[in-house]
């Protein structure tokens, strides 16, 4: 017999979470032996680079969009932001191809794969809006070039790459929020499902 307490949304949510993701799965202390491969470094590296991208972006945000043109400290923080982004993409692309060649969607891990692809697209959007929000010649050139591609899809009616205010908001609010939320979902899926086992080979 279910009681009133059992039927509460809160109770049900807690039970589902604890059942799907008990603490031993969220923070496991062992991993299957096959996890001893260099390929697993790239997922963590992507995650670490994302953290540095966000941290350096936050420093740039504190001083506003023009600071880095005017101060050598600002320019250095901008360099940190740029290079952490390059590391982020480098690691993510190897991660992506690694997961492809492992067919890491097997065993009910399709959503991990799909959130990964969406993360890839979100990151490209974040990188692009970053480039056009730099308020320098690169952003002028990239935005005036890119407008034709986006306009050709009809997207230009809603997403005006020449509108700095709009691009900056996407770059520092909307896309980072999406990237962080999706990353959380992505990694939680991995923890729920565990790391995908290797293909079995016939002897």
């Amino acid at each position: 017999m279910t009681t009133e307490i059992d039927r509460q949304w809160t109770t049900r949510l807690r039970k589902t979470v604890v059942e799907k993701l008990p603490p031993e799965k969220l923070l496991p202390d062992t991993q299957p032996a096959y996890v001893a491969s260099w390929i697993y470094v790239f997922g963590v590296t992507t995650l670490a680079a994302l953290a540095i991208v966000i941290a350096t972006g936050c420093v740039l945000a504190m001083k506003g969009p023009l600071w880095w043109h005017l101060s050598s400290t600002g320019h250095f923080v901008n360099s940190l932001h740029l290079w952490s982004v390059e590391i982020f993409f480098f690691a993510m692309v190897i991660h992506l191809w690694g997961k492809y060649f492992m067919a890491a969607w097997r065993g009910g891990r399709q959503l991990t794969w799909v959130t990964g692809v969406v993360l890839f697209l979100t990151s490209i959007g974040a990188g692009f809006t970053g480039y056009v929000s730099q308020t320098n010649y690169d952003s002028q050139w990239i935005s005036t070039q890119a407008k034709d591609g986006i306009n050709a899809t009809g997207g230009g009616a809603f997403f005006n790459v020449l509108n700095l205010g709009q691009m900056l908001m996407w770059h520092i609010v909307l896309l980072p929020l999406a990237a962080v939320a999706l990353t959380a979902v992505h990694v939680i899926y991995v923890r729920i499902k565990g790391v995908v086992p290797p293909f079995e080979e016939e002897k």
Partner: peptide
């Protein structure tokens, strides 16, 4: 589908 892993954990 993924095979069930019966090997060692480290």
């Amino acid at each position: 589908d993924a095979p069930v892993f019966k090997g060692k954990y480290a």
